[in-house]
Write a protein that binds this DNA or RNA. Sequence first.
DNA 1: CTCGCTAGATTAACACCGTTAACCAACCGA
DNA 2: TCGGTTGGTTAACGGTGTTAATCTAGCGAG
Lengths: 212, 212
Amino acid sequence: MGTKERRERERGELRARILDAARELFAELGYEAVTMRKIAERIEYSPTAIYIHFKDKRAVIQELCDHDFLILAKKLQRISRLEEPLERLRAAGLAYVDFALEHPNHYRLMFMQGHPVEESESEIRKGNPEEDAYAFLHGTILQAIAAGCFRAEVADADLVAQALWAAVHGVASLHIALGTDDWVTWKPAKKTAKFLIDAMLSGLSQPKAVKE
Amino acid sequence: MGTKERRERERGELRARILDAARELFAELGYEAVTMRKIAERIEYSPTAIYIHFKDKRAVIQELCDHDFLILAKKLQRISRLEEPLERLRAAGLAYVDFALEHPNHYRLMFMQGHPVEESESEIRKGNPEEDAYAFLHGTILQAIAAGCFRAEVADADLVAQALWAAVHGVASLHIALGTDDWVTWKPAKKTAKFLIDAMLSGLSQPKAVKE
DNA sequence: CTCGCTAGATTAACACCGTTAACCAACCGA
DNA sequence: TCGGTTGGTTAACGGTGTTAATCTAGCGAG
């Protein structure tokens, strides 16, 4: 037989070519610059052909990002082998910023613009630390708390996780959005991130000295 | 005479009506939802009439934001009367987050999406702490350093300024972009901001205790 | 007073965009 | 050999920002 398989393969191939064309446009020019018509031109099909393989434009780019974001998950996974919990958090934070700056348009779409994404459309399983970066972060902080790395008052893992996430997200997104403005004379993002993470972790592990 | 003045006044009035109509749409629905045609409908003029008073859509919203952002500057100005430099930084950070959450669409446009703004189009004068929030932050940190609030190694005011900015921007922008997702069970933004600022400032004022 | 200029506004159109409806042609199984 | 399914097309809809061409009312000058 094999004809069914051939069809399936061809179907998959066009799908892949759509994603490749979209990825090229998206990675260097961002979401707005990806148009169905431009994708179509590149793959030498009509614009409507894309709708046979994807629900809409959003679905195309969503699939792109889901795929590429597994790179971040893998990076974090490698970091999770580090011994010292605080060292893990430091390294994870820096890896996060690295990823954001390497894939600014991916990052923009996922974390910097409101999410008109239907909840169920993403393939990444929530709560699974191998795929969900927040779950990874939360887990690592739980370990740090258990290991006594922080001051006694610091007990809310969600609060710490969101603060640390906000810190690295702040550095990354500020540089992505405004990094080319000369309104501000920017320090290198990585340096700022390191500085901020160190200050924060240091503040969390020490008795407070700021006057109340 | 006075006819010239009347013309001038009428001209200004239509300009103002355009801005008002745009503000209503923008404040509650965001940049994309503001349409030249919708503005025109509200002021009962044709869409092209707007182009007599503004260069393009961007210029309309830019003028809106420039105007409304002076509110933030005023807020910070009031804070600058506080005595203790660290207290000033804490209060300024919280005020910043407050403002961002109160004007999410303004904040989005100014700090979360890339800036296709021609440099000279903004009316806010760079470097003037009364109008430029970054200049205010930088100045306050210089004072804090001079007052010996930080550890000796902390001497780069730009680095501290950008780290602190990134921290509060991180909290604000994360909540604006993803705050309605239930992917994460969010802590209140203000609480996270307070926690993060405290941790950071505490870390900067204490000798480091994190193992190197 | 009247002519011509100018500033403000309009209508029509252009070039895009995402998306949908209608149609078509090739292939598969019966 | 026939009919249905699958993958593809063309044409169109309603929307966007923006521009060109046009019209008109009001002003200053002759």
